[in-house]
Computed example of a mutant assay.
Amino acid sequence: MMMTIQYGLLIALAIALLYAAFTDIRSRTISNGLNIAIAAGAPVFWWASGLAFWPDIIIQFGVAIAAFAVFAGLFAVGMMGGGDVKLLTVLALWIEPSGFLQLLIVMSIAGGILTLLMAMVHLMRRRKDKLAIPYGVAIAIGAFSILGPRLIEMPPLA
C-alpha cells in the first residue's frame, strides 16, 4: 500500500515537472499554485517513504532552506527567476541531499546547453531584446535524472 502511494506521488511530481517546464517555455513563468501543490505533496511522500522526523525530515527542511537562501540571492541579482527559486526549494523537500546535489549538477549542465541553443537562435533571428531562458526546463531535466531511475526501479503494483 505504501509503495503504491509513493509511486503515485512520484508520478504526480513527474507530471507537475512536465507542466512546469511547458508553462515556462510558453510564458516564462512557473505558477505559485504549482509550487504550493508540489510542496503540499512532500509530507505525504515522507510518510509513504517512512522518513523519520529526526533526522530525515529535518534534513529535508534544512536543504530546502539552504536552497532557497542561495537561489533567492541569485534572484536578487537577476540571475534566476522567482518561479525557478521556488521550484528548486520545493524539490529539495522531495529529494534527499545527495540526490539534490545531482539534480543541481544535471540542471546546470542542461541549463548551459539550453542557454547556448537559445542564444544561437536569438542571434540567428537578429533579435535585440533580452534573452529569457525557460530554466524550468533545465530544473525538470535535473529532477528527472533523480526521479526517472526511481520510477523505473519501482516494483510492480500488483
Rank of each mutant, 00 (worst) to 15 (best):
T4L: 15
Q6C: 03
L9K: 03
I11K: 08
A14F: 05
A14N: 12
L18F: 14
F22Y: 12
F22W: 15
F22D: 07
S27R: 15
G33I: 07
A39N: 04
A42I: 03
W46T: 03
A52T: 14
W54F: 10
W54P: 02
P55T: 09
P55Y: 08
I58E: 13
F61G: 08
A66L: 15
F71Y: 11
F71A: 08
G83H: 03
D84Y: 04
L93K: 01
L93S: 00
W94K: 05
E96V: 12
P97Q: 12
S98C: 06
F100Y: 12
L103W: 01
I105P: 01
M107K: 08
S108M: 13
G112E: 04
L114C: 11
L114I: 10
L117A: 14
V121T: 09
H122F: 07
L123D: 09
M124F: 12
M124Y: 07
R125W: 10
R125T: 13
K128M: 04
K128Q: 14
K130M: 10
P134Q: 08
Y135S: 06
G136I: 08
V137A: 01
A140S: 13
I141L: 11
G142T: 00
S145W: 04
G148P: 04
G148M: 13
G148Y: 09
R150D: 06
M154C: 00
P156M: 06
